[in-house]
Design a binder for these strands. Structure first.
Length: 257
DNA sequence: ATGGCTTCATAGTGAAGA
């Protein structure tokens, strides 16, 4: 089964790219972040027409997450249980016995801003929740925009970014704490090209100069790690007219479906 | 040279993203 994650930076704007990409790549599951639309505007019918059912939780202007799947979705969960949050950043569902968690982790804005504190609190709540989810679901994937570049090799210029959001020690520690739950960065299970990134700033000719960051990830549980067949980043959608600033990240898992 | 772009809500510009 092929799983993917993509921060589309407004599904209103990006729906044509998403439909084309689904048709061309035929993933079993695609997790979206930053749909930026209320649920009544979500294109359920257009996705259904090409074979995808969907679960979505959204809001105007900001945030919004969805799971698109060619297989049945059940036990849909909105947001992190017991964590008060008016931002729509998490949706989870069971797909063929696996737990699929789609997350849009807060950006943080600037180290020591209120939003940074919120990001760290949010990551703590996510970690707590996943600890119990992993007991119930040995086969779990956490897909999304983490807004964390886990290592220096995931950042085009570590010296320039030193101490900034996305790479700060506290954020990277939170990422490591997710790994300590028994999760694995599927991208790094395989040999990858140097300077592989999933996001490039719209400014400064960021994409053309490959001034990127790898901040979109697919973590998989111990039980799924053994079943990973391949992982990669698809840069093609970033080259389109009016692209999202993020591009899809994929993993292929040996699983009956 | 610390900006550069894109989105949304708005009807001027400002906030936010990363």
């Amino acid at each position: 089964m092929k799983f993917a994650t993509w921060n589309v930076n407004s599904l209103n704007v990006r729906l044509p790219h998403v439909l084309d990409w689904l048709a061309a790549n035929q993933p079993d599951v695609l997790c979206l972040q930053e749909t930026k639309q209320e649920d009544q505007k979500f294109p359920y019918a257009q996705l259904q027409a090409i074979g995808y059912q969907a679960a979505h939780i959204g809001q105007k202007t900001y945030n919004g997450v969805a799971i698109l799947s060619r297989h049945p979705l059940s036990n849909i969960q909105h947001n992190i249980p017991q964590f008060e949050d008016d931002q729509q950043r998490v949706i989870a569902a069971d797909i063929h016995g696996m737990r699929v968690v789609c997350a849009y982790i807060p950006n943080g804005q600037a180290v020591d801003s209120d939003k940074y504190q919120y990001k760290l609190r949010w990551l703590g709540a996510l970690n707590n929740w996943l600890k119990s989810e992993l007991v119930r679901y040995p086969e779990l994937l956490l897909l999304g925009d983490y807004n964390i570049a886990p290592e220096d090799r995931d950042c085009h210029d570590p010296a320039a970014w030193l101490g900034q959001i996305l790479v700060s020690p506290a954020e990277r520690a939170a990422f490591q704490e997710l790994l300590q739950l028994g999760l694995h960065d599927s991208f790094r299970l395989f040999e990858q090209a140097d300077k592989s990134y999933s996001w490039w700033d719209y400014r400064m000719l960021g994409f053309r100069r490959n001034l990127g960051m790898r901040i979109d990830h697919i973590l998989v549980s111990d039980a799924l790690k053994e079943k990973c067949l391949a992982a990669h980043i698809d840069k093609a959608p970033r080259k389109l007219e009016r692209p999202s600033d993020h591009t899809p990240v994929l993993v292929e898992i040996a699983h009956r479906a």
